[in-house]
Design a binder for these strands. Structure first.
Length: 708
RNA sequence: GCGCGGUUAGCUCAGUUGGUAGAGCAACCCGUUUACACCGGGAAGGUCAGGGGUUCGAGUCCCUUACCGCGCACCA
């Protein structure tokens, strides 16, 4: 017997060695797997952002995916789990910008595009290395030989190819539209990058001037210098007499021209029932201006400062301008009411800047345009169909409703970003000429678009760009569509939907068959883990203190898909004890048996009982109920096998004879199978023990056959 | 406002197609008999949020109310 077993199990001295053993075996790479493997099973790892280090949410992701992959590998599938990282454009650039600003007091413009990109790349490289080592510590059996990055050369080729195809199909267009402008990050962002924060605000009711017949209300008086109309509901008897009239006014010394219009979008019950229309600084008003053919004067610039008025307003921050205007209203006796209300303020998720809706010339993807090649279906259709006809299933399925709701209300996707880190838009300008392509069309004076693409544009292609597309590779043929996308429910829209869009459009197929959504990992008190609360748990610390095995078990047991979970050191400690229990069961068996006691065809009441349990667990595995499978094998191993079967065997083993012989063979057989079932959940300690057990010509446990 | 979850033992949570309510932790009693004290044995603990319905039978299905959480929209 191995002397190691005389001491408690020590994950620290084991896990690193075992991971190396696996890596050297080559079994992470499906090309090297033993035996005939006809069916493929593929998972693309959601690429973590290269913005820093991994947290427990990533640990859960890695654990679940590793469980699926190890299970399928043991079942004889050609398993590919392809890892990678995401450049996370805005997130990464703004992080590096902040650091440089703090340490050197310089902005990105002080450094210039080239130098700034150099700095970001250095940071990303470092971040990448940390992330990879973290993933390895968790025991991830992914194929490092195929690792990808959303911003490397191959992915750039895919991005440019897709962009051009969409451009040629008229799905990508350049338009002057109102966008979400982040004055802090100095870039546009998509609707999905907005986070709403509830704040207290003042709701002012007033008239533009004494002669004006209708009162309006707003929380943003500073935008009112950009008003061009007052809209009322067509059936509103209070105002019907004024509809069609026009007024020339001076509002806080800024001349404005107001037309009274009737529009069904106006809610007569809200406020005064009349709405000041500011086309350039409100989404709804922009659309209203479309319908009524109104001008759209811009009064706020990219820095969230006033761009009209004389010295009283010009150049003032919007917040200052608000006070100035309110003060003016007061002095003119125009202010009628001032109420405290709660308001949801749109902020940029990465920079925290307050979003300023502005009209800008940007690149968009048209989600409502019929595509000839796809039977005149739109991108929206392509996103909806696979879920409606069941080609793609979401687990848990109630998220499908959320998905449908989101897609059905989807607006055109703004894909251009005014930042430097990312895929540069493959568009070139020469005067009024526009050319789309990776490189300029000829030697003449073409200038490339300064902007980069939304990071989700490239991550949307993740399932196929990682396999070498647009090249028609063997990998693409073998592994696509992938089997499962495992990810957090919070990126259902931003990522999952975009992958379905990109794959439907470019490959005319689905990116994956199943979407397994996991919940958020919270701290013991149920709070989200965050830097400001300093309640985050580093996966590396967990593996250091309790072993990665224990951390994995703690994350998975009792965590139903789509449900948030709480993690605490107490919980993890319980599974460290479990690893030790496994260790000691092995010690008992090895102390009481020899190599000769291993018999292949042993069958009796106990093995049949086990087979039933194994079958039940397999069913759970097939149906993505890992939280149940893990708990069942835990229960069996500890409270059935150890507490009862082993305890009862002691007497029999002591007495010797034929019964003892059968008992020995039974214990070995069941224990071997237990280790196999445990392996996907708690891979290190099981692999370590496997090598010590009776049974000649053993392979590594990672490629042993799953029982049942 | 619309939608989606949740409410089960003191705490944290499971509970698959409806078929006698489960686990971990904590608390209680007993135990050091070499696999393991990172342990074992035992006992205790629940009107499954409230109300109504379907059913032979409901934690599970339907309706409804309350509270908690989340998403979307509004945010004039």
């Amino acid at each position: 017997m191995n002397d190691k077993l005389l001491k408690p199990y020590d994950p620290k001295t084991t896990e690193h060695r075992i991971y190396k053993l696996w890596e050297e075996s080559g079994f992470f790479n499906p090309d090297n797997l033993p035996g005939e493997r006809n069916k493929a099973f593929t998972i693309m790892m959601p690429p973590p952002n290269v913005t820093g280090v991994l947290h427990m949410g990533h640990a859960l992701m890695v654990t679940l995916e590793d469980i699926m992959i190890r299970y399928k590998r043991m079942q004889g599938y050609k398993t590919l789990w392809l890892p990678g990282t995401d450049h996370a454009a805005i997130a990464t650039q703004s992080k590096v910008e902040k650091e440089i600003q703090k340490k050197e007091g310089k902005s990105r413009h002080d450094l210039g595009r080239e130098e700034m990109l150099k700095r970001i790349n250095e940071f990303a490289k470092q971040s990448h290395d940390t992330i990879i080592s973290q993933i390895k510590v968790m025991g991830a059996s992914c194929d490092w030989s195929r690792e990808a990055f959303t911003l490397d050369a191959k992915r750039n080729l895919a991005v440019n190819t897709v962009f051009k195809k969409m451009y040629d199909d008229g799905l990508i267009y350049r338009g002057n539209r109102i966008v979400n402008w982040d004055p802090k990050g100095q870039t546009t962002i998509s609707d999905d990058e907005i986070v709403y924060e509830e704040r207290n605000a003042k709701f002012y009711t007033f008239k533009y001037s004494k002669d004006f017949p209708i009162s309006i209300s707003t929380t943003r008086p500073e935008t009112k210098v950009g008003d061009v109309a007052v809209a009322v509901h067509p059936d509103d008897k209070r105002y019907v007499q004024f509809v069609g009239k026009e007024y020339d006014l001076k509002f806080c010394n800024v001349p404005i021209h107001i037309k009274i219009i009737a529009d069904k979008e106006v809610d007569p019950a809200f406020g005064t029932g009349a709405l000041g229309v500011t086309p350039a600084h409100s989404m709804i008003d922009w659309e209203m201006a479309d319908r009524h053919n109104l001008p759209r004067p811009q009064v706020i610039n990219e820095y969230a400062k006033m761009s009209v008025g004389k010295e009283n307003l010009l150049g003032k921050k919007t917040t200052e301008a608000r006070e100035i205007i309110v003060e003016w209203l007061r002095s003119q006796g125009l202010l009628e009411k001032e109420e405290e209300i709660k308001q949801n303020v749109a902020t940029a998720e990465r920079t925290g800047g307050i979003i300023e809706p502005l009209p800008k010339l940007q690149w968009f993807i048209n989600v409502n345009k019929p595509i000839k090649e796809r039977n005149n279906r739109t991108l929206k259709d392509l996103m909806l169909e696979p879920l409606k006809n069941g080609d793609i299933k979401i687990i848990p399925d109630y998220f499908s409703k959320t998905y449908f709701h989101w897609v059905e209300n989807l607006r055109d996707w703004c894909i251009s970003r005014q930042i430097w880190y990312g895929h540069r838009i493959p568009i070139w300008y020469k005067g009024t000429e526009i050319y789309c392509g990776s490189t300029a069309p000829d030697s003449e004076e073409w200038k490339q678009d300064e902007d980069t693409l939304d990071t989700w544009f490239s991550s949307g292609m993740w399932t196929f760009s990682t396999l070498g597309w647009p090249e028609q590779t063997k990998d693409l043929e073998t592994y696509h569509p992938t089997d499962v996308l495992e990810t957090g429910y919070e990126i259902l829209f931003s990522w999952v939907a975009r992958m379905i869009l990109m794959t439907g459009y470019n490959l005319n197929t689905i990116p994956f068959h199943k979407v397994y959504l996991h919940g958020t990992v919270r701290d013991a008190k149920g709070r989200k883990m965050s830097k400001s609360l300093n309640n985050g748990i580093d996966p590396l610390d967990i593996s250091d203190k309790f072993g990665a095995d224990a951390g994995r078990m703690a994350l998975v047991v009792s965590t139903a898909p789509g449900t948030d979970s709480k993690i605490s050191e107490d919980k993890i400690k319980g599974y460290k004890n479990f690893a030790n229990k496994i260790w000691n069961i092995t010690r008992f068996i090895l102390e009481n048996t020899t190599e000769n006691d291993f018999k292949k065809n042993i069958q009796n009441k106990l093995t049949r009982e086990f087979d039933e349990i194994a079958e039940d667990i397999t069913k759970d595995m097939e149906n993505y109920r890992f939280h149940l499978a893990s708990e069942k094998i835990y229960q069996y191993v500890w409270h059935r096998f150890a507490d009862e079967i082993i305890e009862e065997s002691k007497e029999i083993l002591k007495n010797g004879g034929e019964k003892a012989e059968e008992k020995k063979a039974t214990l070995i057989m069941i224990w071997r199978n237990c280790l196999k079932i445990l392996h996907p959940f708690i891979p290190y300690v099981t692999e370590e023990i496997w090598s010590m057990l009776p049974g000649k010509n053993k392979k590594l446990l990672i490629v042993e056959k799953w029982p049942s």
